[in-house]
Design a binder for these strands. Structure first.
Length: 270
DNA sequence: AAGTTCCCCTGTTAGC
DNA sequence: TGCTAACAGGGGAACT
């Protein structure tokens, strides 16, 4: 499910709901969700939720003595009720809070992961720069792309250089940049990369402002829908006319992922 | 070594 | 209608 704008929305929602709450008890129904499950519950009990942050697509919950890092992967989500009981078979972790409410983690496909750490930077050292970091410049992108033989789609999906983009927003960035997703990035000129850089920031900022996108089965934290799906220009629009040239959007596979492209507006640079 | 494919899971949907 | 294969907003392991 979520890419950076959706994770950002989840973080902001959780912030309004459970800040300063103390965790009184924890139930792990599905141990595979939790890295180093031994002691997971014990480390969390009596910890107070002091703040939230986000790094790439990771949610970071700042607790009194440690950090709880969560990745929702495809279908992870949170909801709150007042029962510590397992509401359904897709609830895998539940947190009893000190105000009689319970935070539940639900994840149909069980791809999501949780980890307790003392050092967020070390735990997340494998991911690249944030889109809104001042150090994220066209030059940074250019230097990384010059050394890579990946397609633009694979390059942006990999979280190694720039983190936060997923399948939806990569398609949107490629379209808005008018570049075919199969273009090998070391062929891109600085002028193209400046456009890509600009569109990454624009798309993510616009999507965050609208609470992310809700398509398919995904609704955001607490069942609140984002609105950015209404702004999508190519993703999920196979057979529909391109908003620029009116020719039909096609769906292809790039980097093993369903990919939407207007082959008239997005030329591959060879 | 960098780049690509496979696979983790379950539910939904497209296609016979 | 019913079965089956393909697919899904991700990413790490295994492979080439």
């Amino acid at each position: 499910m979520p890419e950076l704008p959706e994770v950002e929305t989840v973080v902001r929602t959780l912030e309004t709901l459970i800040l300063q709450r103390k965790i009184e008890d924890v139930l792990v129904h599905t141990p595979s969700i939790v890295y180093f499950n031994d002691g997971f519950k014990e480390q969390l009990i009596n910890q107070t939720i002091q703040s939230f942050s986000r790094r790439g697509k990771y949610i970071i919950i700042h607790l009194s003595d440690c950090f709880l890092i969560i990745h929702l992967r495809m279908e992870g989500r949170f909801f709150i009720n007042t029962s510590f009981e397992r509401a359904n078979k897709h609830v895998h972790v539940s947190f009893q809070l000190d105000d009689h409410r319970v935070l539940h983690y639900q994840d149909t496909r069980k791809f999501g992961r949780m980890l307790i750490t003392d050092d967020v930077n070390e735990s997340l050292s494998h991911i690249g720069i944030e889109f809104n970091d001042p150090a994220f410049t066209p030059k940074l992108l250019f230097d990384a792309m010059r050394k890579s033989k990946r397609s633009l789609k694979a390059f942006l999906l990999s979280q190694e250089v720039i983190t936060g983009l997923g399948n939806i927003y990569v398609d949107e960035v490629c379209f808005r940049s008018r570049i075919h997703p199969e273009t090998i990035v070391n062929r891109l000129k600085l002028k193209h990369i400046k456009i890509i850089h600009h569109e990454i920031k624009a798309v993510l900022n616009e999507a965050i402002a609208l609470g992310g996108s809700s398509i398919r089965t995904y609704t955001n934290a607490m069942g609140i829908d984002g609105l950015f799906q209404l702004q999508l220009q190519v993703h999920m629009r196979a057979q529909q006319p391109c908003i620029v040239c009116k020719k039909p959007i096609i769906k292809i596979i790039v980097a093993n992922r369903g990919t939407y492209v207007c082959t008239h507006c997005q030329k591959e640079l060879k």
